[in-house]
Structures are given as C-alpha cells and as structure tokens.
C-alpha cells in the first residue's frame, strides 16, 4: 500500500520541482518589474489555454491567421497587368498616399479604403513622395516600393510593423532617399537605427517618440555623428542629459550591454 503512495508522492514532488526549476531559470534573466495584471477575459483565456489543448490550439490558430492576413496584405498585387503600378496599388490598398515626381497632387485612399483610378494616367512617372503613416506596412511590403528609385521622401510615422529589419532593408533607396520619418514606431530600437548609415544622402530624419529607445540623448548624438549631413528631429524625449543624471545612465547602459 505504502509503496505506490510514496512513489506517487515522489512523482508529484518531482514534477513540482521541475516546474519550479523551469520557472526560476526564466525569471532571473530579465529583472524587469512584474507586469501589470491582465484584464479578466485575458486571464480566463490564459486559464483555459493552460488546461485545454484545444483552446491553446484555437488561440494559436487565431494569431497565425492574423499573421497570414498581414503577410497577404503586404505581398501586394500580383497580376501582371498591374506590374507597372505595383507600388501605387500597394500604397493605396494599405491606405497610404503618394505623389508623383514633378506633380503636386496627392493620391490617397479615403477612410473606407476606396480610391479613384485616375492615378493610372501617370503610369510611367516615378514616385517622389510616399506617405505610409499609420499603415500596416512591414518588411515584406517594402519590396513593392523597392522599384521606386527616385523616391525622396518616405513617411512611416506610427507604423506598428516597421521594425529594425525594415530599416535594414531601406538600403534599397541608398542613392535617392532624402527624408525619412520613422517617429512613433513602437518596434524600432537602436540596433535598427544603426542600419540608417547606408542612407548617406539623407537630409532629414525624424526619430521622435520611439518608445524602445532608452537613452535618447546619447542615441541622437550618435546618430548625428553617423549622419553628419542630416538634420535629425527628436522630440518627445527628455533629452537633457545633465538634468536626468544622464552621465550615470549612459554608464549604466554601457555596463548592462556589456
């Protein structure tokens, strides 16, 4: 009688310990403050996913579908008759806007995503300015713009899917791009800003309010060093190094990154 009981007991003990061990390893690596409690429906979902494989599966499927949808939107038009206006169609479908070189008229989709077809008149003209602010453009979508080798201005303000990999791809415009706005992009980090070094023709750069840049004062100085001809706008940060004990912060960061 006692033998199976003890083994059961041991079994439980072991699994509990395993769990403990597994957990402990992960919490030590990032000493971040505990995250705020989740809203009730998320907690319920978490509870269910931890107990039922089916629910976990469904949740996974949902996020997969979301990713697929984003990819599909960004792949852009594929039919061959549109090949001359791929970029234009792509920009309008994502509800962005563009301006042809040598013209002042902007083409944009309306708030319901509809757009007039009259941009087709200027088919052969290259684009000079593209405004993709607050759209779902991502790394894949950038391919649709790569053919625009006279693009001078690219606005990507507040794009949730513009990340460091996107910035590293911007070298396709290395000879033409003069103005770039990547302010309010939640995913950009310093590691991605380093890739802007390939845009040596850049004249204006807006890096305001990037939430993942930690010590903005230093980063802006480094950016200015890297792109000497470029005028850099960086608002929305507390840039006063001396006031915020910046020196110390810099030291701390360098220590941490080491």
């Amino acid at each position: 009688m006692s033998a199976p009981l003890t083994s059961l007991h041991r079994c439980c003990q072991r699994s509990a310990l395993l769990l403990l061990v597994a957990r402990r390893q992960w919490c030590s690596s990032s000493a971040s403050p505990p995250p705020p409690p989740l809203p009730r429906h998320r907690r319920l979902l978490l509870f269910l996913t931890q107990r039922y494989y089916d629910i976990e599966m469904l949740v996974n499927w949902k996020s997969q579908l979301k990713r697929k949808w984003l990819e599909w939107k960004n792949i852009g038009p594929r039919s061959s008759w549109r090949s001359e206006v791929t970029s234009q169609y792509y920009v309008l479908r994502l509800r962005g806007g563009f301006r042809y070189a040598g013209q002042s008229e902007w083409f944009r989709a309306d708030h319901r995503g509809r757009f007039r077809q009259d941009f087709l008149k200027h088919k052969g003209t290259p684009l000079e300015e593209v405004d993709m602010s607050h759209t779902d453009i991502n790394f894949t979508g950038l391919r649709n713009l790569a053919s625009q080798q006279s693009l001078r201005t690219l606005k990507l303000r507040g794009c949730p899917y513009v990340d460091d990999w996107f910035l590293s791809r911007l070298h396709v415009f290395e000879d033409c791009l003069e103005e770039l706005d990547i302010s309010h992009c939640p995913q950009i980090t310093t590691g991605g800003l380093a890739a802007l070094r390939n845009l040596k023709g850049l004249k204006r750069l807006d890096v305001s309010s990037l939430p993942r840049i930690e010590i903005a004062g230093l980063v802006v100085i480094l950016l200015e060093e890297m792109l000497p001809q470029c005028q850099i706008t960086a608002t929305g940060y507390n840039l006063d190094l001396s006031q915020a004990g910046g020196e110390k912060e810099v030291e701390e960061l360098s220590q941490r990154q080491r």
Partner: peptide, 20 residues
C-alpha cells in the same frame, strides 16, 4: 517571435544590431 514566442510570456528581443 512567430517561431519561439511563448503565449503569455514576453516576446523575444534578440537585440539585433543591423550593422553589417
């Protein structure tokens, strides 16, 4: 994060430096 993201845990941040 599509591959190695774990539900309800922090996303993976590789701290990738795109410097070439």
């Amino acid at each position: 994060n599509d591959y190695l993201g774990v539900m309800n845990e922090d996303p993976v941040d590789l701290q990738f430096n795109q410097s070439g």
